[in-house]
Design a protein around this nucleic acid. Structure first.
Length: 439
RNA sequence: GGUGGGGUGGCCGAGUGGUUGAAGGCGGCAGUCUUGAAAACUGCUAUACCUUAACGGGUAUCGUGAGUUCGAAUCUCACCCCCACCGCCA
């Protein structure tokens, strides 16, 4: 949710920003509506004040005087009830409108219609060259008997998979590798210094969050809009949703809290399974495990002071690149255009790993910069050392999406005989296994 | 799933219809005292919204929502959450 004061005070700025995002929204009508609502608030408050004053006088009154005052108070109450009813309707409509407005894009976000207008901003790593025709991850995974989608289809349906043997071990190795790195003060300092010398060096707190969430919190995370709804798994009996990312239950953990300034930034690294219905993506990426209903992911979430939040966004991207570089996976960093970014985002950067089996870059990471958009609805605030209270900023980002990273590893580390080497970074967690090979 | 007990400010805790946004204590902040600190003492110490150039004024909030009443933290109903025990279970 945007700040209504910003809309009130700088309607032209908001108009321009929304236009850039390609959103057709009548800002002037909202400003008029806001005025109407405030008039009603005044009217209701004044009537209540009068009513309160009358009531206060009743306790001390006696006899006829008391009866007269009670009658007057009753009268006023009827009028008040009408005004309150009107105000309630206005409030509901107001929130409806406010929830419908997406976040405003940051200055450097390219304007564009769809993903074709995203801007690659840098690439890292040399694309591997093979003396043979590289296979895709499914061909490799099936031949090595580490990915089984056929049996998963039998048992659960399409877009599910069994990860077996070394693939299963690789998941735990990736988790260990990332968790150890991000909870290590030295490593985090190194990454933070890369963003800017001396930038906040607080390590991450590892978290295993719930994978179910209540509708109210989902909404307040701005992750249950009408557009999102089809994408979520809903448990009717319990009125709960399965999360699509650990972000959903990490970002909502501090809802309705006021946190002292000295605790920031609050950095969490969470591991969870993610559930996505992939509605409307029939046929898209049908082969393999790139697009599935259930996958595990390590997610970064940060609550930060407004003056640091953009830097925190860069820091998250630096964390992502650090991980990809240690895994020696070639990638490119893409600045997402206004038409392709998420509604709550002010800025979004994707990292796409090179996938030789498809001969193209595919998305493995996202980093979202939300400014105060999420936190305003979540009511997560900071108390400054001078006593001032303000809404915090949030950032989230993928650390490792296990399935897609597995694809990148299989395809980049494959050898002519169909075996796959294990990246050096995760070898210490593979119990002596250095390659995946079947005779 | 069953039974019982609870949800009051940063924390503990009083409060069963009338200046109660809420006693008291702890914590925090400022000051007095002190060479400094501690102790002691004094004062301050919730959030949101409306209004005001500002000082200030007003409204709402005692888990949430609805209701009774001129008036609700206090009474009624529904829901949510927490705790204990039983059942089930990794």
């Amino acid at each position: 949710m945007l700040d209504i004061k910003l809309i009130r005070e700088k309607p032209e700025f908001v108009k321009a920003a929304l236009k850039k995002k390609g959103v057709d929204f009548d800002v002037d009508a909202l400003v008029v509506f806001d005025e109407k609502r405030r008039k009603k608030i005044q009217q209701v408050d004044e009537a209540r004040a009068e009513h309160n004053a009358l009531s206060a006088g009743i306790a001390g009154a006696v006899g006829k005087e008391k009866e007269r005052k009670i009658a007057a108070s009753k009268n006023l109450k009827t009028a008040l009830a009408d005004a309150e009813f009107e105000l309630k309707a206005l409030d509901e409509e107001f929130l409806d409108i406010m929830y419908g407005i997406p976040n405003l894009p940051a200055e450097d976000v390219p304007q564009g219609k769809d993903e074709s207008e995203n801007k690659p901003i840098r690439t890292w790593g040399e694309l591997p060259s093979f003396s043979f025709v590289p296979k895709d991850h499914m061909a490799l995974g099936e031949a090595l008997d580490i990915i089984d989608v056929e049996r998963a289809a039998k048992v659960t349906g399409s877009r599910f998979n069994y990860l077996k043997a070394e693939a299963a071990l690789l998941e735990f190795a990736l988790v260990q590798f990332v968790m150890q790195a991000l909870t290590n003060a030295e490593t985090v300092r190194h990454i933070a210094d890369g963003v800017e010398r001396g930038y906040q060096q607080k390590p991450f707190i590892p978290v295993l969050p719930p994978v179910m969430i209540r509708p109210e919190m989902f909404r307040r995370m701005a992750r249950l809009t009408s557009a999102d709804k089809d994408e979520r798994y809903y448990l009717q009996q319990d009125d709960m949703y399965l999360i699509g990312s650990a972000e959903h239950t990490l970002g909502s953990m501090h809802a309705d809290e006021i946190i002292s300034e000295e605790h920031f930034p609050l950095r969490y690294v969470g591991f969870s399974t993610s559930f996505r219905r992939e509605a409307g993506s029939y046929g898209k990426d049908a082969r393999g495990i790139l697009r599935v209903h259930q996958f595990d992911k390590i997610e970064l979430e940060s609550f930060s002071l407004p003056e640091y939040s953009l830097k925190e966004h860069y820091f998250f991207i630096a964390v992502q690149e650090y991980i990809m570089q240690l895994l020696m996976l070639p990638y490119r960093v893409v600045l997402i255009c206004t038409g392709d970014m998420g509604r709550p985002n002010a800025r979004q950067v994707d990292i796409e790993a090179w996938m030789p089996g498809q001969n193209m870059y595919r998305e493995t990471h996202t980093a979202d910069y939300m400014t105060d958009y999420q936190a305003r609805r979540l009511n997560t605030k900071v108390k400054r050392s001078n006593g001032a209270v303000e809404v915090v900023h949030t950032n989230d980002a993928t650390a490792v999406a296990i399935g897609r990273t597995l694809i990148a590893i299989l395809e980049n580390y494959q050898q002519e005989d169909g075996s796959v080497r294990i990246p050096d970074a995760v070898k210490p967690f593979m119990g002596g296994i250095t390659e995946i090979r079947r005779i």
